[in-house]
Simulated assay, not measured.
Amino acid sequence: MTSQQAQPTVTVSVFTHTFPATRLGASLARRFASRQLGGWGISPGAPLHDTVALIVAELAANAARHGRVPGRNFELRLLYEHKTTVVRIEVSDTHPRRPDPSSVGMADPEADGGRGLALVEAVAHRWGVDDRTGPGKTVWAQTEPVVS
């Protein structure tokens, strides 16, 4: 007779969706992320919700604007660790150009853009850029864990 061990409780939820690399796709990514966060019990107006929504908006806008390859989409992936309430946001596109973390915050004050990653850096606990399978890269950011 074998003894059965209790399975550990699943503490990570994952959401993945592909969007067109357009302004509309970036807007939809933010809306879908907001809806998913609500499904995980993270309500609009809560600091974690608003932080994640801002990060998704900026990374998705960058994927649509700077990571766009005609005929290709970008992917949004959210991972929510329930115990620590950490959310990891990943946006993958197929463009080979990678953002330079050392130049974040050096946007021309007169320019219309160039501040998205500075915002991400300001509100995220950590962020970075990784290679992905196939062409392109994944830009990711992670929220700060809640300290009990």
Rank of each mutant, 00 (worst) to 15 (best):
M106C: 11
S27T: 08
A64K: 01
S13K: 11
K83T: 13
H49T: 05
V14F: 05
S27V: 10
R88I: 13
P8N: 06
D112P: 09
Q36R: 14
A53S: 12
A61G: 00
V86D: 00
T9M: 13
I89H: 01
D131R: 13
R72L: 09
V10P: 04
Q36V: 08
S34Y: 00
L54Y: 01
V12S: 08
A57G: 09
R65S: 11
F32M: 06
S34N: 04
V87C: 05
V56E: 00
R126H: 10
P70I: 13
P47D: 07
S148I: 10
E81S: 06
M106Q: 14
D130A: 15
A118D: 12
V120S: 00
M1L: 14
A6V: 14
V104L: 11
K137Q: 10
D93L: 08
T84W: 01
P96G: 04
A61W: 03
A46S: 13
F32Y: 12
P20Y: 01
G71Q: 06
V91A: 05
A111D: 14
M1Q: 14
V87R: 02
G113N: 13
V10E: 10
E58K: 01
E90G: 14
D108N: 15
H49F: 04
T18Q: 13
S102Q: 12
A118C: 05
D130Y: 06
I89G: 00
I55V: 15
G128T: 06
A141I: 02
I89W: 00
A60P: 00
G45Y: 12
W127S: 03
F74C: 04
T138E: 08
F19I: 05
M106V: 12
A111E: 03
K83F: 07
S34P: 08
R98A: 14
L54K: 03
H82C: 07
P47Y: 07
G105T: 13
D112V: 11
D100H: 08
T16K: 09
T84Y: 03
H125F: 05
L78H: 02
K137C: 11
E110S: 12
Y80I: 04
R98G: 10
V129M: 08
A26N: 00
R23T: 09
G41C: 06
P101N: 06
S92P: 09
F32V: 03
G136R: 02
G128H: 08
S3R: 13
S13C: 03
W140H: 06
V56P: 00
L78E: 02
I42Y: 06
A122L: 10
I42K: 03
L48R: 09
G136N: 00
A60W: 07
V123D: 02
M1N: 12
E90W: 02
T9N: 07
S92C: 01
Q5L: 14
A21P: 03
R68H: 14
R115W: 15
R30L: 12
T9Y: 13
T84A: 04
P47W: 07
V146L: 08
